[in-house]
Design a binder for these strands. Structure first.
Lengths: 188, 188
DNA sequence: AATTCTATACCGTCCAGCCGGTACAGTAAA
DNA sequence: TTTACTGTACCGGCTGGACGGTATAGAATT
């Protein structure tokens, strides 16, 4: 109920946007407030401290992750394929949450890191249940992580342009082929 | 010449250490100076500004990268194998430089990002020259990136303990098997 | 005594958090 | 239907502390 972009929501997405585009250092309370079209005091009304703001972001991340798990589990092409496909940054709400949180995690925040670890663990379980082999699962996870890592490192223009790695756009289809190849002959 | 741990070197590695263990926010000039057993003034004597300090770190990274390229090119097991093996964090000087720089890159520093992009490009060329197929090369790179990303995210105790992913230690041998598997049948 | 290096005191800026206010909507006694 | 009161949403100035950088005086090495 009442799901227009409330001030609170605007603040949260503004925080994400600033983290993604300008890094954690630029994401000051004032800057976030300004980007959300709210005063600093207004922001502080919704989030009592910067830590609370971060907690809000983590909560959002967790909620979106739950949805992602569900979609992953019922994907017709399987969890592994789903993971690789969705790991290339495409501007989803979830994508943005992840990259924003990643920026924070590098900073120092323990809460964010913990959330990440937990989400990762679930992903791994899902992929393992799909492909069977632990080493292959790990490899697939790492590949997806690498994809996100690139998205987090090199700024993402605010649109939803295709992810690039060192200037070249990523060929997802080719990547999926490689993944299929490494699934074809699992070692113990 | 003169390669005892000079004050300058100590400052640089202290900076890296703080970046790795406590994040960029904690790596203040005073904290770095203290960790290096030097006063703030002493630090500023060697590096005129924080930016200069970062440049020093980037320079070190570039120099170590050159050595790594050489070792990679002449590795008996090939570039791809070398890359995967050395991507699991093992506490090397180079490892530490990379992770430290990674922390900074997330912050906002353009210089660091640029250096990263260049190093990455060279790695990619080397791996491509080894495995032939672009998609496979990309996959191998991403896999290695994922490994480093984990090292950067979850703090690394100051020793040289084996890298862990979500609590489990990484089985490099198994990973190399998977890589070998995906090299065995490259699709166009 | 000159150069190299170290230590300390200090300044300006920036930022998180605080606080005293404003606006307004509901509500309920008169 | 006015008046008084309460709670929610939001504003913007202020402050105290931290941090980057400067100045400068002193110690050690040559």
């Amino acid at each position: 109920m009442t799901n227009q972009p409330s001030a609170r929501d605007r603040v949260l997405t503004a925080y994400e946007e600033l983290l993604i585009n300008d890094g954690p250092r630029a994401a000051t309370l004032e800057a976030v407030a300004a980007a959300a079209g709210v005063s600093k005091g207004g922001l502080l009304y919704h989030f009592k401290s910067k830590e609370a703001l971060t907690e809000g972001l983590v909560l959002k991340l967790r909620e979106l992750a739950e949805l992602d798990f569900a979609a992953m589990a019922k994907d017709p092409l399987g969890c592994a394929s789903y993971y690789v496909r969705t790991s290339v940054f495409s501007g989803t709400t979830f994508d943005r949450s992840i990259v924003a949180a990643m920026r924070l995690a590098q900073g120092e925040d323990g809460t964010v890191r913990k959330a990440f670890a937990e989400v990762h663990a679930t992903w791994y379980k899902l992929i393992l249940s799909d492909v069977g082999d632990p080493a292959v699962s790990r490899a697939i996870m790492l590949l997806g992580d690498g994809l996100y890592y690139h998205a987090a490192l090199f700024g993402i223009a605010s649109g939803s342009e295709p992810t690039t790695v060192d200037g070249e756009s990523v060929d997802v289809a080719a990547l999926l082929n490689v993944v299929a190849q490494m699934r074809s002959g699992p070692r113990s």
